[in-house]
Design a protein around this nucleic acid. Structure first.
Lengths: 228, 228
DNA sequence: GCGAACCTACCGGGCGGTCGGTAGACTACT
DNA sequence: AGTAGTCTACCGACCGCCCGGTAGGTTCGC
């Protein structure tokens, strides 16, 4: 049965070529299971079974449980770098940059939250050196957002908000998506991304600013003092 | 040494009375350790040692590891009910109610995040029935926030925001505090609570509203169109 | 016949949990 | 006052299980 699954799996992936595909599949499976059950609650056997191998067979591909976790987290950070940070870094205007960050990060999570979520939930499963590495990269990301908020403040678009608190709060909002969003749920992924992005922007911007530049419609109500 | 620690501990607690104090201390210690290392990475021995008992001694007070977790989560939900939901339920005005919710929840986390954080991070450690219980109570809380957002929408203070997405996003922002806030850090707990509350309100409100009703000071700049 | 890709069988160890005890405080009876 | 019984609050030793990891094959395509 195991052998059959294995063969079926190979056929399904297209019978292409060997080692790299298999290894990638292992990482993907492991990420999914770590995400669902948590790192410590997941056994090497769980992962091996999920990819149609025995434990010993799995060890042909991986060095150990902790290396596997570190590899997944590294992959997730790479994803964040490539799909969020780098594209955003090329955006000059701070507000547009912030929108880019939030939207791209949120989209990444609605598409496949496994690795990204493990990245924040399983840090204590790493060896100290590996943990330091990941935490450093995470801090860089938060600093990048904080710097963007500081730039917005310098433009007068943000008043009286500590950039660090702002950055963390936005990150919290985004990361939390993976806890409640279901691809098969009531809401479409793109809608969720749009909603969250709009909330994030208006959370940090001064009143009286248009939060969604370049977006037609939705100019419903001009800034107006109607209080009491 | 264990016996000494034990005795010292008793003396320190005031040599008051027995079982309830001890049990409370156990829950508190366990919550702290679960929070720091995670439920699955924490052994019964860890907890026993932390309270100056052997494993067998600890089992005099608890029924098992999962019951301990459930008890802690139940306590955390009770805290949330008593300190956040009930007080907020007595507030009629939706905006003030929302401010109450966010501020009180955030304050709870800056004061002692252990139990509250376990509540959201260790759900998969529970037995199915217990998990259903806790998840139900959590859903009630999110619904409560969503209803408040819906009420704000009916007042015209919120436009085009899905109450559910809004509620989840705010919760994410609040819960995330426990990941970055340190009591001994640069920022004062009250400042953080105030900042996050302000962000939360302006995240959901239309521009042109004053986000901190009844709060003197901090009226630095009236809503004004200064764009470009 | 040789290496890549696996397997079976096993290891030491730590886990959650239990069992049978027991020191000592506190009654209860004589 | 003495002592027998009882109960609370623990402890040392142990159990079975499963964990991460490994040693030493075996199969199979080239």
């Amino acid at each position: 049965m195991t052998a059959l699954d294995n063969a079926a799996l190979r056929a399904a992936t297209g019978a292409a070529n060997g080692e790299q595909d298999r290894r990638a599949e292992i990482y993907r499976s492991a990420a999914r299971i770590f995400h669902r059950k948590g790192y410590h609650a997941t056994s090497i056997n769980d992962i091996a079974a999920a990819v149609g191998l025995t434990k010993a067979g799995l060890y042909y591909y991986i060095k150990g449980k902790q290396d596997l976790l570190f590899a997944i987290m590294g992959f997730a950070m790479d994803q964040l770098d490539e799909q969020v940070i780098e594209p955003a870094r090329r955006v000059e205007d701070p507000q547009t940059r912030l929108e880019t960050i939030v939207a791209r990060h949120a989209r990444l999570i609605t598409q496949d939250s496994s690795a990204l979520t493990i990245l924040v939930n399983e840090l204590e499963g790493l060896l100290p050196d590996d943990r330091a590495d990941i935490i450093g990269r995470q801090r860089d990301y938060v600093d990048f957002i904080a710097d963007t908020l500081a730039a917005l403040r310098d433009e007068g678009k943000v008043l009286g908000l500590d950039p660090t608190v702002g950055a963390f709060s936005l990150v919290g909002m985004i990361l939390w998506i993976s806890r409640w969003y279901r691809a098969d749920g009531r809401l479409d992924g793109d809608e969720v991304v749009a909603e969250v992005t709009r909330m994030a922007i208006s959370a940090v911007l001064n009143r009286g600013e248009d939060s969604n530049a370049g977006n037609p419609a939705r100019t419903g109500q001009p800034a107006k003092e109607t209080r009491e």
